[in-house]
Design a protein around this nucleic acid. Structure first.
Lengths: 210, 210
DNA sequence: CTCAAAGTACTCCAATCAGAGTAATCGACC
DNA sequence: GGTCGATTACTCTGATTGGAGTACTTTGAG
């Protein structure tokens, strides 16, 4: 989007790994897994090799050596270049400093909320609330374990952020459920009519939308 | 991911539009724009035509008619099928009821936070905070206008959700900034050392990570 | 009345991605 | 010592995606 080739954060993850030590692609993936980075960055092989090839083409990583053991496929060990280190710092700085529009599925779903009947929506949102509750409880249990294990919060911040997001989503959903159940949501009457009659109701956005 | 072909929410948006009335693709895009759905759903022509073709192949939409006016390219008008209506309800229900893992860029960035020096991180996060503040103020102004215009909250929920997310992100970032600035973040000492010495510090995750 | 700018309605393509598939090795259990 | 499953280390393929490009039409300013 912004810089060329700064689309997939997996590339950033690769740079960070290679910054610590030269590695072959599969080792990168294992390192990311071991540190649970695969929870913050989409990781799959198809992309991994493509992404590394692209970094290579852009001169941000270079081949350090290739080795083979037995008849396993040859392993290509990459190292980060100076340009790569620069790109790493610059990209990370950008990601940290400038918020950029995301398109969460739930936001999309909410924007089509009137397409399901109010009572069904209520049920669906309550389901979501339950699942959110579970996720939050799971996270809190995990945190206790990790804290006991002595991992400093600094290396855990991304999970805390995910937790904060979940909590915000829960609060929002909770409030929405209450507004629908309690009948206080503005537009609810029109929504009800829309699903009771054959759908021949004057849309309230007709003027407002233009 | 879950169902086959339920990857791009734009397809859902198309189904919702065609549910209201048969349309040609470009009209779908204009309708979505007019209702600001392009803020909740990624909309671009390349995907739009691909997505509609895929819906067509799956039998969820059908060609209603084709017309042409003047020598402009022929317009193919699509309508939703019964299977399409079913898919619409089912997909929307799933999106509303089951939260599904997202990978926001900021979460990725946070997970590599130790790669920049603490003081730089502080500066970057403060930058972000400022930008978030701007976005939030902008949203609040927009809301006032829309409320005055008489658009019911029901048709605005997705924006309220985005707003809630921004606020949660602001609170999180604020807290993190304070912890770094105030020196109370667990792991900060190690982080400082890492960037002051040549990087030869024992990593505190060595035991914890396995 | 004329010309430029904005809008209409797509089409094309290179790049990227997800995930299934493959093929070799290792450990370990009976 | 054989074979079952897990792990290692990729490779391939079909979809998707974003963005640029095209070719006409309508509007509106001078």
């Amino acid at each position: 989007m912004v810089g060329k080739g700064r689309s997939n954060p997996l590339a950033l993850a690769v740079l960070v790994c290679l910054y610590e030590a030269p590695m072959h692609p599969y080792e990168v993936s294992q390192t990311l897994r071991a540190r649970h980075k695969d929870e913050s960055v989409r990781l799959n092989y198809g992309s991994l090799y493509a992404v590394i090839e692209s970094l290579h083409k852009r001169g941000l990583v270079a081949v350090a050596e290739t080795e083979r053991s037995g008849r396993l496929p040859e392993r290509t060990i990459y190292r980060i270049t100076d340009a790569g280190v620069h790109e790493l710092r610059d990209w990370l700085a950008e990601l940290l400093a400038v918020p950029h529009k995301e398109y969460p599925d739930f936001e999309a779903a909410l924007s089509f909320l009137p397409a399901v009947a109010p009572d069904e929506a209520l049920q669906l949102l309550r389901d979501r609330l339950e699942r959110l509750e579970l996720a939050i409880a799971g996270y809190e249990a995990a945190r206790q374990l990790v804290e006991k294990g002595g991992l400093p919060r600094l290396l855990w911040v991304e999970a805390e952020f995910a937790h904060a997001r979940h909590q915000a989503e829960r609060a929002f959903t909770q409030a929405l459920v209450e507004e629908i159940a309690g009948g206080t949501l503005d537009g609810l009457a029109w929504w009800r009519q829309l699903h009771e009659t054959g759908g021949d109701v004057e849309a309230p956005w007709s003027r407002a939308a233009r």
